[in-house]
């Protein structure tokens, strides 16, 4: 800042001093805010010299504010249209930005299109009511699955939406993994059941018939083979269900091996 006499004139020197003073006071204020946020201080001295008064932020408010700032889950206050007013660091981290620069951004800018109606519904929460929804946030090239909870409070003349957010990406990944493992276990069980059916229906019959033949009882062996053949056909019908044209096309003709393995 420079006056009519230029930066080196009397006004310029005064301007520089003023800027320095403002910088010093800004640094003091930032330090005071940091101390309040970190819980190192619980009151501020405000007002003109001679008329100072102490504004206390102690009591239940301070630990609450410190907790909100430090807890792992994200918390933010939003205007009714979803503009971020204040956000803690975990909230900002989930969106991939710094908490300070997040102020003024619309939350909807981070929401994938498919989940926009859910978020608009969350922002429309009534005072005293709570709404929750799982939504996908877009963070650069990645997405994060989060659980958003909102409630509305009246502050002065406007309604503020309080928003809590928890990252459930890992939880969802584990659930999906468990479902895959459950499906694989089910497939294994199904295969085992089929193997047991084949064993009971076909193998046992063939082995018995073979032994019966070896013991010279041809007529009985023939009966066992016939019964085994009927049971085998029934089993094949159960396994295949209704067949359709083309579903029974094989890669090569069926072969009956005549050599003993």
């Amino acid at each position: 800042m420079s006056g009519p006499d230029g930066p080196d004139g009397p006004d310029g020197l005064a301007g520089e001093a003023e800027v320095d003073e403002l910088r010093r006071r800004l640094a003091e204020l930032e330090e005071a805010l940091r101390a309040l946020a970190d819980g190192e201080a619980d009151s501020l001295v405000v007002g003109a010299p001679g008329a100072e008064r102490v504004v206390s932020v102690s009591g239940t408010d301070l630990p609450y504010r410190v907790m909100v700032e430090r807890l792992g889950d994200g918390a933010a206050t939003l205007s009714r249209d979803g503009t971020v007013l204040v956000a803690n660091q975990p909230f900002a981290r989930l969106l991939g930005v710094d908490a300070t620069s997040l102020r003024g951004w619309p939350l909807t800018a981070f929401v994938v299109a498919d989940h926009m109606p859910s978020v608009l519904d969350l922002l429309d929460v009534a005072v005293g009511d709570t709404r929750r929804a799982e939504v996908t946030l877009r963070i650069g090239q990645h997405t994060n699955q989060v659980l958003l909870s909102t409630t509305a409070v009246r502050a002065a003349q406007e309604t503020i939406v309080c928003c809590a957010v928890a990252d459930v990406t890992e939880h969802r990944r584990l659930v999906a993994q468990l479902e895959q493992e459950r499906a694989r276990a089910q497939q294994r069980d199904d295969r085992m059941r089929t193997a047991l059916e084949v064993n009971d229906t076909i193998v046992q019959g063939l082995v018995t018939a073979e032994m019966t033949l070896d013991l010279g009882q041809q007529a009985r062996a023939r009966q066992i083979l016939a019964a085994t053949s009927v049971r085998a056909r029934e089993l094949i019908g159960e396994l295949t269900g209704d067949v359709t044209a083309g579903s029974l096309r094989r890669g090569a003709p069926a072969r009956i091996e005549e050599d003993t393995p």
């Binding site: 193998v203 046992q204 063939l206 082995v207 073979e210 032994m211 070896d214 013991l215 003993t260 393995p261």
Partner: peptide, 8 residues
């Protein structure tokens, strides 16, 4: 194993 000429 069952089979494979078990009788023998």
């Amino acid at each position: 194993e069952k089979g494979g000429r078990l009788a023998a």
